[in-house]
Amino acid sequence: MYNEQTQQPQQLAAQFAQRFQMLAQNIERIIRGKHEAIELALICLFSEGHLLIEDVPGTGKTTLARSIAASVDAEWRRIQFTPDLLPSDITGVSIFNQAHQKFEFHQGPVFANIVLADEINRASPKTQSALLEVMEERRVTVDAEPHPVPRPFLVVATQNPVDMDGTYPLPEAQLDRFLMRISVGYPDHVSEVEVLKGMPTGPQVERLPVVARASDVAGMIEFATRIHVADPVYDYIVALCGATRTNPHLRLGASPRGSLALLRAARVKAAAAGRHYVVPEDVKALAVPVIAHRLILTPEAELREVTAAHVLGELLAGMPVPQAA
């Protein structure tokens, strides 16, 4: 755009943005009026992170995950978390094959490109931790034998913040494994009317066209890691995360894993915008979904109904944007 020498990375970024928008528009045919949530979910996908959707039932959490899987020609599985769910129900088990006289590993539902962990907080902590281990290490180890999960690998977990009876809230250390925590929220009036009009003959997840192959997604993930980040932007990210560690409203600030997550997500956002470089706007836009769930408020702040998003907003409002490269 501004120099002939930048044509190639810019063109690649433009191609990335084009595919990203195609995916988003495809998903938006099912999930109406939730462009921001869709975009964040896709950012998670291309950042190789995992998404925690915290919302009330019936807002399209499951549909969002199914739509992503349908759009990228990827295998998806749904795991309904219940208190009696065992870790092996997720990861798989080794069963003795009498014909071959040996144990054979039978993959669990986690062996898919997109795994929907529905109501993750209803499972026991032991089962939760089994899933979180796969999320982090991207492999399942059974009988000392590792079994890698396919790539891309995106876990979309949901949890209901209202009905808390009989649930096991995710501890903060495990929340940190999720790249983002978002809320889909209710659709606005117009979007909800459109949803009603579209049923039952409107677009359904099963009918969504595939707009990207799994290999395309892998290429886009690879490209996103090469997006340029200027030194001042690094400083900006570190300064922001550092500020959360000293804020009086926060008992626990963002960890270096949080900084890394913010950087990865910002790179994908920049590419999704057709840029081959990250700008502070990318960081600023992703700070709340990427960082907020990693913060622990002080009891005083909770009493005052201060939220982590509110604290982050204040920090961003007072944080000088880097002025020069």
């Binding site: 501004y2 120099n3 020498q5 340029h228 840029r275 470089y277 990250v278 002025q323």
Partner: peptide, 16 residues
Amino acid sequence: ISNFVRYAPDDVAHEA
């Protein structure tokens, strides 16, 4: 253009 100058790894042209 301003963001490009500040954060992109490339030089900017006089036309910009």
